[in-house]
Design a protein around this nucleic acid. Sequence first.
DNA 1: CCATCAATTAGCCTTCGCGCTAAATTAAGC
DNA 2: GCTTAATTTAGCGCGAAGGCTAATTGATGG
Lengths: 115, 115
Amino acid sequence: MTEEDDDASDTYEAVFTALAHPVRRRILLTLNFEGGEMTAGAIAAMFKHAWPTTTRHLGVLVSAGLLHPEKRGRTRIYRLERKRLALARDWLDWFQKDPNGTTEGGTRWQRRRSR
Amino acid sequence: MTEEDDDASDTYEAVFTALAHPVRRRILLTLNFEGGEMTAGAIAAMFKHAWPTTTRHLGVLVSAGLLHPEKRGRTRIYRLERKRLALARDWLDWFQKDPNGTTEGGTRWQRRRSR
DNA sequence: CCATCAATTAGCCTTCGCGCTAAATTAAGC
DNA sequence: GCTTAATTTAGCGCGAAGGCTAATTGATGG
């Protein structure tokens, strides 16, 4: 039970840490826009910084589970893992609904965004 | 136009960086569960680490716009800013819907979570 | 097989995050 | 007004993040 909690905590830590850097967010957004898959070269070409820097960012995204790498010939393809992003989205969703089902505590609960 | 983008980028950077640390996520969750408001002392009492450490975490959350501080007598009350959390949630939401309205690119688009 | 292209790995350096303790602030209470 | 309680500010130390260049791997093509 305690271990499960730690695992979950580690998961969120990795995901939100990965999302914290603008370069990594831009990689995710572009990947999303481009259909979910890109080569390392195409991703590295987006930035002015050195290629190894991009490689490192890709590593962070992969170990957070947000990207999945696949070797194809001499190029490497990175695929977006939308389920992992949904996990973070769902965590944030807790703050938009009634926290525990009770109405105690004073603050009234507005239900925003019906969709 | 470019400045607006930078501002937005800074906003997301601050918010996701704030969310990256387990202590700060726990503060937000507890605050949510407790109705949205707590004193600094009550928050600090949740953790085994020193009080100034909590003060610093609260500072990070405040400058990310996720918490709003209010002086009341000699105690300080921190209030949860749910709109700010919704902003991060909405950013993540882009990855769960059709990215640009077109169906090109191959990946089929599933619409998860009807609620 | 040798050269080349795609990408990663190794190693360096600087800045930043986050823990601590000690000192300072500020409001209440007697 | 002095003490006590609530909280922040100052400053230190260490380890990790994130940039760079140089070197290495591994698949392709001639």
